[in-house]
């Protein structure tokens, strides 16, 4: 085998004449092309993930929704939770930015992979946080609905007045079921999409990283 590899090495170093040759201008044009690297993809996906849920919430049509106005009036907890939520979001954006900046193509192969995995982890934690928050919101509604008639009426008022004739207990049971199933379903679908997306994007990287890590054992 040694001989064969030596032979290969000798031949490899003579390959130059077969290689393509790009001109100065061709190379010059390339430096202004857009990168499509995996890091760029992570950045784009992360920005979408961080902004989209907030955009939906901040959009005027959503805010003017009677439903949310009613609920918002109901409790100051809602405002407190919001403040808490946005400070955590800000913290995540800051941390993501810092880690993203740390990614350097000049690092060793293993370190580069490690930096990317670390950056992705920040987003992963953020997503888990968001999903937990959405579950908490649903739980908060379910709790509100089950203990307070007023809260239930507030929600019903937000949804329109045509349900007044139905007995309150029946509405309550239905609301609890709808909220429970809706909450779990929403979390599962959102989480599923997220993990599938990153799973596909980082499959190759993880395999290679594992291979380098395994050498240390």
């Amino acid at each position: 085998m040694m001989d064969e590899l030596e032979l290969l090495k000798k031949d490899w170093q003579k390959k130059d004449e077969y290689l393509p040759k790009l001109s100065y201008d061709e190379i010059h044009n390339m430096i202004w092309e857009k990168s499509s690297s995996i890091v760029k993809w992570i950045l784009i996906i992360s920005i979408l993930e961080i902004t989209l849920p907030n955009l939906i919430y901040l959009s005027p049509s959503f805010r003017e929704d009677e439903f949310f106005e009613n609920v918002s009036n109901f409790s100051s907890i809602f405002i407190a939770v919001n403040i808490f939520y946005y400070s955590i979001v800000a913290l995540y954006i800051y941390q993501f930015y810092r880690r993203y900046k740390e990614i350097s193509v000049l690092a060793s192969a293993k370190n580069l992979m490690h930096q990317i995995i670390k950056t992705r982890k920040t987003v992963k934690h953020y997503i888990i946080f968001c999903l937990s928050m959405s579950l908490i919101f649903f739980a908060f509604f379910i709790f509100g609905v089950s203990i307070s008639d007023e809260f239930l009426r507030d929600i019903m008022a937000g949804m329109g007045d045509n349900s007044k004739e139905i007995p309150l207990d029946k509405i309550r049971t239905t609301a609890i079921w709808v909220l429970s199933i809706g909450g779990i379903l929403f979390t599962a679908v959102a989480g599923g999409i997220y993990f599938l997306l990153y799973g596909l994007l980082l499959r190759k990287l993880k395999k290679n990283y594992k291979e380098l890590k395994q050498l240390e054992v």
Binding site: I31, S36, S37, I38, W41, V105, L106, L112, N208
Partner: peptide
Amino acid sequence: WKAYPKFRGESKFSTWMYRVALNTAITLYR
């Protein structure tokens, strides 16, 4: 090109290229 400003000629241009080229091929390229 993106990394070029950080290359300060501490090593040979070619040595530095190996690292960036391999990192791109193994990790960054999709």
